[in-house]
Simulated scan of single mutants.
Amino acid sequence: MAKVMIIGAGGVGNVVAHKVAQLSSVFTEIVLASRTLAKCDAIAASIDHPIRTVAVDADNVEELTALLKQEQPELVINVALPYQDLSIMDACLAAGVHYMDTANYEPPETAKFEYSWQWAYQERFEKAGLTALLGSGFDPGATNMFTAYLAKHYFDEIHELDIIDVNGGDHGYPFATNFNPEINIREVTAECRHWEGGQFVTTDAMSEKAEFTCPDEVGTYNIYRMYHEELESLTKHFPSLKRAQFWMSFGDSYLKHLEVLQNVGMTGIEPVNFNGTEIIPIQFLRQLLPEPATLGPRTHGKTCIGCVVTGVKDGEQKTMYLYQVKDHQDCYKEVQSQAISYTTGVPAMIGAKMIVEGHWKKPGVWNMEQMDPDLFMEDMNKYGLPWNVIELKDFKLN
């Protein structure tokens, strides 16, 4: 049905390549591209399906445009670094290729998570007759779909949203990150923002803590309020929301190490001079930490990610919780990955499927919740991320 190009050969790129290859009737040809050809070749060799590999510098718009014109894919699945979103969007426009990603653009020089740069492409994609789908990972991505699904099927109006991301996995390291360390640490150490009273309210990073018990015997965890990009689009597209928050679990060891690294300046994003060479501390730290793609065989436990929505139906207030639980080792058995990469990669494949099958193919730049959620949610159940929805009584975090 469609030829696709996957850009990015990290942990998520590996999962996307595996899952796309499983749907050969939908994705008839696959090209895997990255700056490092050896990473692409290693992924391709692990998949029992033909995948062509190419090297490309995704920061170089001319080089990527030339590759896209040569290969002529219908869609680019961008699972490279968020810093590269705009250059890849520019190349897609120049080559006439549909675009999607899993995380919003982030400028390298400042930890700023917002959609303004990508929303500014709306008119160009619309005029070109091309679709750009933003944030088709898990959070953002599946969490946007969860919210839209609950709003569509369970409420007349939604008023409060709590996105809760719990990773109950253990990889055995005192300190490691389950996805790109640089992106992870920038997110966690950034100022927290949550939506309340018609505006974003800023608080110190990790200053709000709660305890949450996950269903399906996943366990009870400490969760911390932080900012996450889907809050920006969800509060825009669901204006009835009076409060929206994002929560993530962190273990004591992770927080202890992170505090020390911050105190000594190792999480900094400003260049420092070391023996006459300019280095960025957080990028140096990234080289010292375990590569997230290597954590799969040693990570045990489960993730539990979902949305708690409170609103009104037929004049009555109620609270619904839609969530997904995934076992790390189940992911490794299927695609040689831990669950963090898996839960991001599967929604990326499904978002791509929605576009190439024509369900979500419409000119312009779109966030996930602007699309009808039903087919996406059906595919979550079909392709490895089965979900549940339950009603909660007396739910309260803060």
Rank of each mutant, 00 (worst) to 15 (best):
D330C: 11
S116H: 04
D139F: 13
L133T: 01
Y323I: 08
D139T: 09
E270F: 07
F238P: 10
Y99N: 04
Y105R: 06
E62P: 00
G358Q: 00
D165E: 12
C92T: 06
A2T: 02
V346M: 11
P140Y: 09
L23M: 14
G141M: 09
D252W: 12
M354R: 05
G8Y: 02
M371N: 04
H359R: 10
K396W: 06
K353E: 12
G96S: 01
P140M: 10
N14F: 08
K382Y: 09
L255E: 12
E106H: 02
W119D: 15
M100P: 07
K152L: 06
Y227W: 13
V389K: 06
A151V: 00
I47G: 00
Y105Q: 11
Q370I: 04
L241D: 01
N78V: 03
A80G: 15
G197H: 00
D85S: 10
L32S: 03
H49A: 11
T343K: 12
L285V: 00
S87D: 12
L397S: 10
Y332G: 06
C92K: 02
M266P: 02
D379F: 09
F274W: 09
P271R: 03
K302G: 05
M1L: 06
M320I: 05
E291Y: 05
A38Y: 06
T213K: 10
A293W: 09
G168L: 12
D394P: 03
E211N: 11
S116L: 06
H18G: 08
A9I: 06
I280A: 04
T102M: 13
T319K: 09
P373D: 10
A33D: 02
T267K: 05
A190G: 02
H153V: 02
G10C: 12
L68Y: 04
H328C: 09
I282Q: 02
Q70I: 09
C92M: 14
M226D: 00
